[in-house]
Simulated assay, not measured.
Amino acid sequence: MAINLQKGQKISLSKESGGALSKVVMGLGWDAKKVPVSMLKGLFGGGKSEDSIDLDASCVLFDDQNKVVDIIYFGQLKSKDGSIVHTGDNRSGAGDGDDEQIKVDLDKVPANVKSLVFTVNSFSGQTFDEVENAYCRIVDSSNNAEVARYTLSSQGPHTAQIMAKVYRHNGEWKMHAIGENGVGRTIDALLPQIIIHL
């Protein structure tokens, strides 16, 4: 059974999954906040119940000196070493389930990489006041079982969220629910803010 993480909580992925994890998926999801449509607009087709929001999921790889090793995002869907693959950009957040997924082969992540930080930023510029039901979750690829989930509770004027970190500690992989607000439409703009939380 998956654990629901609180902000700041850290867990061992192997303990929560009941064994060593080798391949995982970080699934990220969100919905555009429902905007009420007036009766008149609805009658004349002038309104819509939901705006699309283009949030982008990214994964930044850091070494033990907190230097960037690689960045996986909509502009580079695969890490240079091939251990991490982004399944592609979702530009609306419409539909059920994960809106974007990043697949990680933990056994193939290079030894010099200490942590993987997962973020979401609003490429379309809307703030998280217009986003609801945002979450990230780790899924065991071998059996499709959800290991852990972190659901965002904070809405506000920020345009990015530093969601979670998966990192090596004493020979095992752990997950830390960071849940910090950020500002920036792109992952490059977010990098200095991520480093503070490493």
Rank of each mutant, 00 (worst) to 15 (best):
N4H: 12
L5M: 15
L5V: 05
Q6E: 15
K7F: 02
G8Y: 10
G8W: 07
S12C: 11
L13D: 00
L13I: 03
S14C: 06
K15S: 08
E16N: 13
S17R: 04
L21E: 04
V24R: 02
G27R: 09
L28C: 13
D31R: 13
D31F: 10
V35K: 14
V37R: 08
M39V: 12
G45H: 04
E50T: 14
D54F: 06
D54W: 07
A57L: 04
S58D: 14
C59K: 06
V68W: 08
V68C: 09
F74A: 10
G75Y: 07
G75L: 08
L77K: 11
S79F: 01
D81M: 02
S83A: 15
G88H: 12
D89P: 10
G97T: 08
D98V: 07
K103M: 06
L106I: 03
N112L: 02
S115D: 12
L116G: 05
F118P: 00
T119S: 15
N121Y: 11
Q126V: 13
E132R: 12
A134T: 09
Y135W: 14
D140A: 11
S141I: 00
S141M: 03
S142Q: 05
V147G: 00
A148F: 11
A148R: 04
R149T: 13
R149Y: 00
Q155A: 15
Q155R: 15
G156W: 09
Q161R: 14
I162F: 09
M163A: 11
M163G: 01
Y167C: 03
G179W: 00
E180R: 13
G184W: 09
T186D: 10
T186Q: 11
D188N: 14
A189M: 13
L190N: 12
P192D: 10
P192W: 09
P192Q: 12
I194P: 09
